[in-house]
Write a protein that binds this DNA or RNA. Sequence first.
DNA 1: TCAAATACGCCTTTTTCAGGCGTATATGGT
DNA 2: ACCATATACGCCTGAAAAAGGCGTATTTGA
Lengths: 145, 145
Amino acid sequence: MNRLNRKVEYALMALKLMAQKRPGELTTAKEIAETTGSPFDATARVLQKMAQHKILRSEHGAHGGYVLVRDLSGVSLLELSQLILGAVKAAKCLQNMGDCELKDRCNIHSPISILNRKQEDFYKNITLGELLMERDRARTREVQA
Amino acid sequence: MNRLNRKVEYALMALKLMAQKRPGELTTAKEIAETTGSPFDATARVLQKMAQHKILRSEHGAHGGYVLVRDLSGVSLLELSQLILGAVKAAKCLQNMGDCELKDRCNIHSPISILNRKQEDFYKNITLGELLMERDRARTREVQA
DNA sequence: TCAAATACGCCTTTTTCAGGCGTATATGGT
DNA sequence: ACCATATACGCCTGAAAAAGGCGTATTTGA
Ligand code: SF4
Ligand code: SF4
């Protein structure tokens, strides 16, 4: 249904790259942008956001960079999206400071709120660990197909 | 995560309204737009789309209108979204005719495709019936909380 | 002192979303 | 026959959101 935000994609690419490194090894925004092809500025911004939220640790100055400090199996896709995008709800009226001009005549408030809850549960249960570290996912998919 | 498209909201409002009527009773786009406060044109368009896909039946001319012809418990939110929005995938590269400029260097193809599949499954399992006909949903929620 | 890196705010461009307009067509009432 | 009221549909414009570039400050190792 919904297309993944580009910034979230950049974050996932960066995390995937960093997860493949030796523990403690630093990665620069430049390196990430160059290997993935993503724009430097946008990449740098999501790295900063993730550092603020303690998913990464940043080191300033020359030979600086970022390093993964949280176990990705403990980070949900919901958390990642929220820290990058801010809380995104299923409808305007649920959003923080959201004012929908239909709010008085609207007849789907409770369906929308139910859906919102289900969506949050769904994304909360997808961890970046399981998403990015697909070991023998190929085999699994063949079996399912 | 993702905000529901406005057209889909209009469709849900219309369906909810029509589901509350006597079986076979016609509802006009004008009535729906006026009672829900949604813009007439946008509402009319989603009604036409739903009629094309045989969720509604339309009657032309004076005293015309729309009537629900499918059991909403057999219609998924995925189906509704697809017929209104067209197939929407989790990323550009999965979209029909989608060309992502990163596709060769991108390192999250398979995570994205896994996510896409999960999302589709999720929305496929939400029926409009369960979403719109919330009988004693209030009680249910209290118990869960 | 310089080079390389993070940090951050602002701005423009691009793309998508939302919705209005015009017009054709169908149909029942008068 | 004519008109009022509906659906059907394509096109176009304006608003909103997404995407991303620019400038600059700060940190730090060589
Ligand atoms: S339309 Fe109804 S549900 Fe959607 S945002 Fe406005 S009030 Fe909330
Ligand atoms: S970034 Fe990777 S996943 Fe996202 S669209 Fe481009 S290719 Fe597909």
